[in-house]
Design a protein around this nucleic acid. Sequence first.
DNA 1: GTGAAAGCGCTAACAT
DNA 2: ATGTTAGCGCTTTCAC
Lengths: 347, 347
Amino acid sequence: MEGKATIQDVARVAEVSIATVSRVINNQGGVRKATEERILKAIEETGYIRNAAARSIKIKDTKTIGVIVPDINNPFFPSVMAGIEQKARENGYLAILASTNESTVVEGEILKNFIERGVDGVILTTANEAGDHLKQVHEQGIPVVAVDRSIQRYDCDTVLVDNVKGSYQAVQHMILQGHEKIAIICGPQNTTPGRERFIGYKKALEDYNIPLDERYIIQGDFGERSGYLAAKELHDLEERPTAIFASNNLMTIGCVKAVSALDWKLGEEVSFFGFDDVEIATFVNPKLSVVSRPMHAVGEIAFQLLHERIQFKEPLPKREYKLSPELIVRESSRALFPKGIQSGQTS
Amino acid sequence: MEGKATIQDVARVAEVSIATVSRVINNQGGVRKATEERILKAIEETGYIRNAAARSIKIKDTKTIGVIVPDINNPFFPSVMAGIEQKARENGYLAILASTNESTVVEGEILKNFIERGVDGVILTTANEAGDHLKQVHEQGIPVVAVDRSIQRYDCDTVLVDNVKGSYQAVQHMILQGHEKIAIICGPQNTTPGRERFIGYKKALEDYNIPLDERYIIQGDFGERSGYLAAKELHDLEERPTAIFASNNLMTIGCVKAVSALDWKLGEEVSFFGFDDVEIATFVNPKLSVVSRPMHAVGEIAFQLLHERIQFKEPLPKREYKLSPELIVRESSRALFPKGIQSGQTS
DNA sequence: GTGAAAGCGCTAACAT
DNA sequence: ATGTTAGCGCTTTCAC
């Protein structure tokens, strides 16, 4: 019992050949009921578990997919992962996860390791959109789907959230509530999300003929501190904005902290919209309006796409999904001057 | 180039035998510089990546450990995972993660899959402390270390956080600040953390000769709503507690929400201590005092223990680590009557 | 219905 | 320094 029992051991105990044992293990039928039972009993007795390594050396697929994320501590990824995992399980796959800590090198190592282990496919949010380190995977013909960040150097299925649309809608919502002095706290412009969310902002203003005002465009770095600083900067303006849009979760947190510290009345003196729902959103008063990403769905679709690739190895064309984010309007975004009174006037 | 290149292909291209190729792959030395370079070039050319399956069929270890968590969305686990991963990487191991969604059945399946894949060891927070489903792992002689929840049926190394100590210290802290009417929002008493945190509470009161008051002991279920309800119940009391201890993160959130809704002045009218640091802790005003668990360290130690088991397969005795939680005193816990005035007494 | 035997890709003696 | 070869545990013809 101790140590690994092999198919040989089972065969010996059941007094049959290994071929027959193999047949029942993979229930291919064609085995007499009696022998099958004898074998089953032998398996039980020996505590046999088949060796996947030996198996997958013959068989091509491993029914395993690898998932790679840049930062396991960012709540976005566990949610996506949950979606992947659920779909994977439904389809008889095991999803294994590894985190790169935003390091391209580590990502390459993990990738290699996954390939060595013969994963059937990979879902990843890369630490490096250039994608040169994906060469190996590509060469092996292993299907890949990119999530949240696209890959430049190689074509692969991609599932993104429509950042442009999300920020557009948030800004539009505030415009329709009468705001014109709308500030944005941008993410880094060398990242896709940072760029796209800024584009949505500009597009909304443009569509409603509101000129871009440089004073209201603050560069942040997706970090909490930069959100804090940005809010402060906006508050220092002679002509303060009446609404703020923060491009991500951390900057949302920083911004709200600052607004509160400055005793700038959220929702009243300044409306607010954040990108990505955060735990504190429903905690602060007033509750935060946000653009929420369908993370679970992202995971499900990513698996879906991957699964199709795995099944029909044919060279399907590259596909790109763009999921629509959802506008969650809570209390921090309000109509400007509900009584129709203009700024600078007395009541 | 397309499709898997094998060691054979490399040997052919480099015009050497597969043995020599194997030698350079595993850099065992004893290969002339020139040939080595030829082989390296051939590897590059063919895009060869060694097949881990074929390898681990001969070699015993896979340099891979499996990590199983019950709920990937609970922020506790990603943190622990980060600790495990870091140590694993430092030691040349790859950590793969899978989540059971608190299902014993799924946990069994994952375990089996991990065994099939020949993981060298497993770190898990089980969905079922009884541990009958761990039979298979045990039989295979694969080392296991339990994290945060212990395993009853089998002996294995365990790393826990000292719940009793954590809640003891929190309550003690409040006692030393003059509080006597200290309420607890308990977790389920059929879970180890729920039980232990209650024990620490009782012990602290006992040590300071404060009689247990049933009115101040509220049963919760570790869910946010129960924390909310509990706070309400306490507020309804004729003789309200002057301090509250909440046994976990979610109930902390619920409780604080309720306190705020009831306009019960946190820190002033009622002191507060939570178990587990939460994002909102530093967000609300006043900032929350909490018992914080050293999650990263838990992960590091778990790997450490596992690694030792993997290396010296000898039957070490079962080891149990209990890490001390850290008391983070912020603003929600304050001295009762800071001027030294005793309850019911005159100065 | 069952078994014998040939590999799968690799490592590790054992030769040379 | 390099090659030959015997397996590792398994699946899969091909016989019987």
